[in-house]
Write a protein that binds this DNA or RNA. Structure first.
Length: 457
DNA sequence: GGAACTCGCCAC
DNA sequence: AAACGTGGCGAGTTCC
């Protein structure tokens, strides 16, 4: 008989989780403080160089003319006034409070070369002030001890602070290398990162049990993102080994599938997809966007299929969205409706792990909360069990951090094989045994970094 | 001089 | 009819 998880089960998970996370906090992660100091100075010199370059321009002299000695290139308030009030430029986008935005996207759409310098300065200052500075400030005796909290997040995920271990740059190569170069294993050890692949998609399937999604997750040959790329870009086939075709797959994944799961809609999707493939929000002519093959561009291809403008593409994406939820994933879609209906009736929702979310929430929030929380709980239980095995068997290896669906270990090389086996046992056997609602195989990836090498691939 | 706010930007 | 979920944090600004 199936027994549903209770609040007491949820409590126990967080009680044990708190203890395991506290032990990881106490272990800490080794940090190269001298490197941080050196790199900080290096970044400061680069920033000063860009600042000098900016200050020599007409644009900045205008800025100084308005603000005098108070002119500050880090003031977005001043920049916004200068661009949108003094220079009368039409704001490409506005902020939450309705003022002209000065974020990267907005500045990128304004044809003033000086703004490029500001963006470069912003990026370097972000690395220096948010990461390297914090690493130096927060370290004691060459170790960082980030906090991991379980009481801050509405979805019953974790948060991290002092410093935040969960937002160290990864996607931008330069930022990633500069920041992660600072984080090291203990002497003679290596960093090992384990992460669940597509965990939220898998956990979502445990809630809605859509047969089409279950097939995608169980059948290694099938590929949801490739299928969506084929549909969106009207392709007969998709070869992931071709870089351009793989880019189309990434566009479908990040510009349509994931945003749809979070509750986005075709209008934003169409804009995002165009961004991915380099097409403008206007009429399309031959030779626009990314090149599919010699002399054949994405705009040629879509025009040949009857989509000759952004406007038309938006209409087409409406059809794709409709097909996505009404046909392809209609069981998933019915679950969403029923789930929201039930919340509106009860005033709360209950997760598969026993946690309760109550209070006023919008539709998208209600759909996302259980999936986001439950996915993290899979990582947390894995973390707890690993910590338990580690202490019982007196490993020299240590758990040092966690990022929602990902854990970082500081491993003594001769223990690696045993640790791999332990992780696999926990994820493949113990998790599904404890939680019988896990109806899809959970997969984990292991990334092993070099002995004495930093957290840089 | 600190609290509370906005904005921008990093992660999943 | 509306239209992307969860955080932390630094700098600048405003208010007391």
């Amino acid at each position: 008989m199936k027994i549903k998880a209770t609040t007491a089960d949820a409590y126990k998970l967080f009680h044990n989780g708190t203890l395991a996370l506290a032990r990881a906090e106490r272990q800490g992660i080794r940090i190269d403080t001298e490197y941080c100091e050196r790199k900080k100075q290096h970044l400061t010199r680069k920033i000063n160089k860009y600042q000098k370059e900016l200050q020599g321009t007409k644009f900045y002299r205008r800025w100084e003319h308005i603000y005098g000695r108070k002119a500050n290139i880090y003031s977005n308030h001043q920049l916004s006034r200068l661009l949108y009030h003094i220079m009368k430029i039409e704001p490409p986008k506005v902020t939450e409070s309705g003022k002209g935005s000065t974020d990267e996207d907005a500045l990128g759409q304004i044809d003033i070369p000086e703004l490029k310098i500001i963006l470069k300065i912003r990026k370097l200052a972000k690395i220096r002030d948010t990461y390297l500075d914090a690493f130096i400030r927060e370290q004691t005796d060459g170790y960082l001890h980030p906090s991991f909290e379980l009481h801050n997040v509405r979805t019953y995920r974790s948060s991290s602070s002092n410093p935040n271990f969960q937002n160290i740059p990864k996607r931008d190569k330069e930022s990633m290398q500069i920041c992660r170069r600072a984080l090291l294993p203990r002497p003679g050890h290596m960093l090992v990162e384990m992460d669940f692949s597509a965990l939220e998609v898998h956990i979502g399937a445990c809630y809605h049990k859509d047969p089409v999604m279950l097939k995608y997750l169980k059948d290694k040959e099938s590929d949801m993102h490739a299928d969506m790329a084929k549909q969106i870009f009207m392709l007969e086939a998709l070869d992931r080994s071709d870089p351009i075709q793989n880019k189309l797959r990434s566009a479908a994944k990040n510009g349509f599938v994931f945003p749809q799961f979070y509750g986005d809609y075709y209008g934003n999707n169409a804009a995002s997809l165009c961004e991915w493939v380099g097409l403008p929000h206007s009429k399309w002519v031959p030779g626009m966007g990314i090149q599919l093959s010699d002399g054949y561009y994405i705009s040629d291809h879509l025009r040949n299929n009857g989509i000759k403008s952004f406007q038309k593409f938006v209409e087409y994406m409406k059809e794709v969205e409709d097909d996505f939820w009404s046909n392809r994933f209609h069981v998933y879609n019915n679950w969403r409706d029923k789930w929201v209906e039930q919340y509106r009736r009860d005033g709360y929702l209950k997760m598969l792990t026993g946690f309760t979310c109550a209070g006023v929430a919008r539709k998208n929030e209600i759909i996302n909360y259980p999936i986001q929380g439950t996915a993290f709980h899979c990582l947390l239980l894995t973390f707890i069990e690993l910590d338990k095995a580690m202490r019982k068997e007196k490993w020299d290896s240590k758990l040092v951090g966690q990022i929602h669906d990902d854990a970082l270990l500081d491993v003594r090389p001769d223990e690696l094989e045993h640790i791999k086996g332990t992780i696999n046992r926990i994820v493949k056997e113990e998790l599904p045994k404890k939680w019988d609602w896990i109806i899809v195989p959970l997969d984990i990836d292991l990334e092993v970094y070099g002995v004495d090498k930093p957290w840089v691939a």
